[in-house]
């Protein structure tokens, strides 16, 4: 029994020493700077404070979130993992740029589609109208703003070119 007690004490001391050694051997984790936290918080919104970026919001809730970001950085989370962490818990609302997932694709696709449709219409209109005009050699409509001075000025400028 005594032998067992001695062995147990020895094991405990050994494990403790190993644990302490491991802790001492680890690199100290630096506390993230306010700038590091803000650069992430700047891309997030707090759901309590509507449309105010998390890095500048002065409420207590936002302060707690910034502290949470700092804690996650200490734990070794990357920037993307932090966004993912908050996204999973609070949804799209927290990210200033919602992720390209599911319904959010529409957010990017629709402006692109609108731009393409608009460009096609514009160029078709310009192409058709200028083509017809060249063919018809239409009569020019005199300018309705009668400004003899402007006409004279334009004429003079033309001469100089």
């Amino acid at each position: 029994m005594k032998k067992f007690q001695i062995i147990s004490i020895f094991i405990i001391i050994a494990v403790s020493l190993i644990a302490v050694g491991n802790v001492l051997a680890q690199e100290p984790v630096p506390t993230p700077s306010a700038d590091e936290v803000n650069s992430i918080a700047g891309n997030m919104f707090c759901p309590v404070c509507e449309n105010i970026p998390l890095d500048v919001c002065g409420t207590e809730a936002c302060e707690m979130w910034r502290e949470e970001i700092a804690d996650l950085l200490i734990l070794g989370f990357s920037e993307d993992e932090i966004y993912e962490y908050f996204y999973e818990r609070h949804g799209d609302m927290v990210l200033a740029t919602p992720p390209l997932k599911g319904f959010n694709w529409l957010m990017y696709i629709i402006p692109g589609v609108a731009m393409i449709i608009g460009t096609v219409f514009l160029f078709r209109y310009l192409k058709n109208t200028t083509k017809q005009t060249a063919a018809e050699e239409i009569e020019e409509k005199p300018s309705e703003i009668k400004d003899p001075y402007l006409d004279k000025l334009e004429e003079e400028l033309k001469k100089r070119n």
Binding site: N43, F45, P47, E50, N51, P53, G91, D92, M93, A96, T97, P98, G102, F103, N104, L106, M107, I110, P111, A114, G118
Partner: peptide
Amino acid sequence: FISFWLSVLYPILSEIFANARVSIGPEL
């Protein structure tokens, strides 16, 4: 169109059809 889409229409559609509230930041 882009401004209207991102700031007004898309957040409303997202809430109706995807049940997700979104706020879009200046970067986009």
